[in-house]
Design a protein around this nucleic acid. Structure first.
Length: 716
RNA sequence: GCCACCGUAGCUCAGUGGUAGAGCACACCCUUGGUAAGGGUGAGGUCGCGGGUUCAAGCCCCGCUGGUGGCUCCA
């Protein structure tokens, strides 16, 4: 039976019967056959040796594509193969190390390994492992795939005593009972190292160009912290040592753009261990950036009809019991603080700690009944209900702003005519993040959300979601942020854990989709990712190291108004439940500014720059004129300073350049004479010519007022 | 929290058991120089904290603390 192979250029080749990928490559050309690393059969990546037994579209995977770029599939094959080689090397060095799972990633690979209790891996082992790897690559052993019948395979894995691999096989079979379990030998089956693996791989170890071990980490089996702890060994592989070196260099350069590095150098923020981990001290320079951003956002909010509120950073425990934040999310919160009198009374009566915790976390029968009745479900279970005289009060640092805002809404009557009510606050919240999760400004324990709660009628939900997204669009456009993605979290259609009516959800989900589409950036719909109380839209950006951070979110909430018994009067003169939309489109000022520092690499547009202009007198002879220039700019509201030091002008320029100041005004006798300034623009390594002082003041004023992204004084 | 690595001047870093160093930044002096570092002098340190080993510890050992990377993209 003959079969037809369609190649990427559309040409077809006929073969008398099943052929391997390498035979197809061979039939096209010697050179291609030599360079081939694998094949794609109808888009699916396979071994070069895989047999094709039906008509298919086939393309040969080589390291470099026609256009000279590296084929990601080739890197995938290479890294997956490198993971095997690394695992073999590690097992030689540490006998008894059990392999768990070793996939290729976007730019590296890892292998999760369970090491014997008495022999952990250290970075000092890397050199020996890399030497073993080099040896294996030099032997150029073929990756040899063979399949084994289900029962034989399971029996063999059991015999080998590696529960992790057995689990992998069982999971694969659970997903597809007809799946063929395959092994890959790095060389000859039975003689060389083997691993249960789905493949595919490069033809032989010699085809892996260069491998480097990057780092060690701890991980959990199946990502479950209650499960076995594993050691994760990260590495990467490239086609050549030069590319690997370039990758390492690029990682180092990215590290230099890290907001923590730039933030320290430009004195934008400070974290002090005595103040506490994950708590940001905004220094004067960073505070300017933040304040300017907040002013910008506030101005946009006013245009959209928001009203601003201020609320305190703490609230009574009862508030969070009502909202449901406590104790359900207690692991993510700072411990509540109790009143001194209560503590004294309890300690003198011999109260145990466990008992105290119970009394703090319990609720009164009255509160439980009220909430259960309003929400229509038993959200407060009987085991948490305690008699009033046993309950302990106290306060909590707030983990969210919504309870305070709900209370503001509830503090006055509302008519449908006044809806929606949009309460905005740059609200500071506190969350107990694991110490290992903390990261500069992007993961902290105290942060200020650009928060607002929109209390609206059900019909108003789509327009309000759209309003939130148009705000995001405006702000991102002004800042030139284009590289972000949007996640639309929808409900899992098979689950009934969600509150709110099905029709409401349908409408809100559609509104989220429509709004996301209107942004004109990629967005993904993710069923099952909605909160139990409503669908949501998240905005996600990448940092310089390639890590993703969620910035803002827009969430529809069908639950909160119930819990706080909020209502407005409808046209029928009866009370109605509002729908609440939580929205913090930029997430937190901390994370957002951290991302912005990296986005601009510290070179902020003029309106955001802590120091917008520095005046540099050529010598002391023009110090006085420099003061005149400084005064004129300051009077116009420009953030300006003057360098009166006794450096030469070259030195002053170097110093100012390090601070990434948008405009430098060099003033010497020539300028003083004609009330002019000699301009130097950030990023332009030369004298930008002279300009009348008044014109400069005028133009920079316009640039700042319009929040221009570009330094436009020369081009206006 | 868990695993690995790291913590020396404000910053970047050197210092393999024997009297704490460099560059930049800072202060002062000389220099008054037209577009990315003129020259000199000086000040600045509980070497993250606590314990131990040693005649002697920044260095070796233990504990703590803080930072960094990572903690599934299901064979």
């Amino acid at each position: 039976m003959s079969l037809t192979i369609t190649l990427p250029d559309g040409s077809k080749k006929s073969f008398p019967g099943p052929v391997s990928g390498s035979e197809v490559a061979q039939s096209i050309g010697q050179r291609l056959a030599k360079d081939a690393l694998g094949i794609r059969v109808d888009g699916q990546l396979r071994d070069l040796t895989a047999r094709i037994d039906r008509d298919a579209a086939v393309s040969i995977v080589t390291y470099k594509k026609r256009d000279g770029s590296v084929d990601p599939d080739a890197l995938f094959l290479m890294r997956h193969s490198a993971a095997h080689v690394m695992a073999e090397a590690i097992q030689r060095i540490v006998p008894g190390a059990q392999l768990v799972y070793g996939p290729p990633l976007e730019d590296k690979f890892y292998y999760d390994i369970r090491f014997p209790d008495d022999r952990h891996l250290r970075e000092s082992d890397f050199a020996a492992i890399e030497a073993e790897i080099a040896g294996i690559l030099g032997e150029n052993r073929a990756f040899t795939r063979y399949e084994e019948a289900r029962d034989a395979c399971l029996a063999r894995l059991k015999r080998e005593g590696n529960k992790y691999k057995l689990d992998n096989a069982e999971r694969a079979l659970a997903a597809d009972p007809d799946a063929k379990l395959s092994f890959y030998a790095t060389g000859e089956p039975g003689r060389n190292w083997e691993d249960l693996c789905r493949g595919p791989h490069v033809p032989s170890t010699g085809r892996i160009g260069a491998v480097k071990i990057l780092s060690l980490a701890s991980s959990y089996w199946h990502g479950d912290e209650n499960s076995d702890r594993l050691t994760r060994v990260y590495g990467t592989a490239f086609g050549s040592q030069a590319e690997l070196d370039a990758y390492i260099r690029q990682r180092e350069e990215a590290a230099a753009r890290d907001h923590r590095v730039i933030g320290a150098r430009l004195r934008l923020f400070h974290i002090d261990e005595t103040v506490g981990q994950g708590l940001i001290l905004w220094t004067p320079a960073g505070s300017i950036v933040r304040k300017e951003l907040q002013s910008f956002i506030s101005a946009e909010l006013r245009k959209q009809g928001y009203t601003e509120v201020f609320t305190p950073h703490i609230g009574r425990l009862e508030l969070y019991k009502t909202s449901g934040h406590f104790p359900y999310y207690k692991d993510k919160q700072f411990t509540p603080f109790l009143e001194r009198e209560d503590l004294d009374r309890l300690s003198s009566s011999g109260c145990t700690c466990a008992e105290m915790v119970n009394r703090v976390e319990g609720v009164s029968a009255r509160l439980a009944a009220g909430i259960n009745e309003r929400t229509g479900t038993q959200t407060i279970t009987p085991d948490r209900i305690l008699p009033d005289d046993q309950l302990l009060g106290g306060f909590m640092l707030r983990p969210m702003n919504c309870p305070h805002h709900a209370k503001i809404f509830g503090s006055a009557p509302h008519s449908y005519r006044d809806m929606p009510v949009r309460l905005a606050e740059f609200g500071t919240v506190y969350r107990w993040e694991l110490s290992g999760e903390l990261n500069g400004m992007t993961r902290v324990r105290g942060f200020t959300q650009d928060d607002a709660h929109l209390f609206c009628t059900e019909d108003q939900v789509p327009a309000e979601i759209q309003g939130c997204l148009s705000l995001v669009k405006t702000v991102f456009a002004t800042l030139g942020i284009k590289d972000f993605r949007v996640r639309v979290g929808l409900r899992d259609p098979d689950s009934d854990k969600y509150t709110g009516k099905r029709e409401s959800w349908d409408k809100a989900e559609q509104a989220c989709r429509d709004a996301a589409r209107s942004l004109g950036v990629p967005f993904s719909e993710e069923p099952g990712e909605a909160a139990f109380y409503g669908p949501k839209i998240d905005f996600v950006v990448k940092d310089v190291i390639g890590r993703e951070w969620q910035l803002g979110t827009v969430q529809v909430d069908y639950n909160m108004a119930d819990r706080f018994d909020l209502s407005y009067t409808g046209p029928d003169n009866r009370p109605h439940r509002p729908v609440v939309i939580h929205r913090a489109p930029f997430g937190s000022m901390e994370r957002f500014c951290g991302v912005l520092i990296e986005h601009f690499a510290g070179a902020f547009p003029t309106w955001l720059a802590p120091e917008q202009v520095r005046v540099l007198p050529i010598s002391e002879k023009t110090n006085e004129y420099a003061r005149t220039v400084e005064d004129a700019l300051r009077a116009a509201g420009v953030r300006v300073s003057t360098d009166l030091g006794n450096d030469r002008i070259q030195g002053k320029i170097k110093a100012a350049t390090d601070w990434k100041i948008p405009y430098l005004l060099i003033v010497g006798p020539r300028d003083a004479e004609g009330r002019a300034v000699s301009l130097r623009v950030r990023g332009v390594e030369k004298d930008a010519g002279s300009m009348p002082l008044d014109q400069f003041v005028d133009r920079i004023g316009r640039e700042i007022a319009e929040r221009r992204a570009e330094l436009s004084v020369l081009t206006q």
